[in-house]
Design a protein around this nucleic acid. Structure first.
Lengths: 147, 147
DNA sequence: TATTGTTATACTCTATAACTATA
DNA sequence: TATAGTTATAGAGTATAACAATA
């Protein structure tokens, strides 16, 4: 009946680390993302790729990999799944015969629009304790770490 | 000879997301962590566990799992490795016969001290573009996301 | 009956080498 | 010779179910 008395754990050193806190926050948000986006069948990385293709019609696999720090072999299956769901189109690249230009089908565009809407909403929810200014500042600080 | 002209990619939507930026920053820092801590043979999660044991002698597996959001089966191998390296000691828990109290050996304490020093240094390096105040603010904002 | 620690295991994610076709 | 895309695959990380010992 009684909850076991939780001993307070000393995690002071870990809490002073940007790396530790960034990872914990990232995992927290990704967990919410996976749950909320399950109806659309989109993992975080699927969404990121769909988003890049949608806003950069004709983009190549290589460019996606460079932008998202993905490895080319791991993008193949992901794109195959999006292709199988008829969300993306592949067309011959106009200048480079080796490359393939990617763009969204109409269904892909519709799904992206819906996904962006849902992602924007869950972002607000998961950062509910932050004001708009604080949220913007958090993003700016994070970008100065990884850019 | 000429670098291929890099087309600017539109990733504006992704960049507005705390989740995307937190993940990118986290991966960036973890990459540096893994490289710099390789001489000590400590991954981020190894360090976190070592740190908790060091600052909480007698802590149990269950408490570590709860504090770090780890799953118990995945902690078994990790602790076995630390044990094999003679970094941790296991003693019977004074109150609960099922549990095992964990603490650091002298070697474990020495390694932790060295590791904390190195981690503090790499944290400063990886956030070199941030002032102390900005770094503290970044941490405070991140904690308000996941706590 | 519930909890700690454990084993076994499946699934996913990440990384590397090597191939093809084009440049 | 170098690059885009692909295949196959190995290794690491993450997840669930089930068990023994203890509460």
């Amino acid at each position: 009946m009684n909850r076991p008395p939780r001993k307070p754990i000393n995690s002071r050193f870990l809490r002073t680390l940007v790396g530790y806190n960034a990872r914990r926050a990232s995992l927290q948000i990704m967990g919410v993302f996976i749950q909320r986006m399950a109806p659309l069948d989109l993992r975080p990385v699927d969404f990121s790729v769909l988003c890049l293709i949608g806003h950069n019609p004709g983009i190549t696999s290589r460019e996606i990999c460079r932008e998202l720090h993905l490895l080319a072999p791991n993008l193949v299956r992901l794109l195959a799944r999006l292709d199988q769901r008829a969300l993306v189109r592949r067309q011959a690249h106009p200048e480079d015969g080796r490359a393939v230009g990617l763009s969204l089908s109409e269904g892909g565009q519709a799904l992206l629009a819906q996904a962006e809407c849902e992602v924007a909403a869950l972002e607000v929810d998961v950062t509910a304790d932050l004001s708009d200014a604080e949220r913007a500042q958090l993003i700016a600080l994070l970008q100065r770490v990884y850019r």
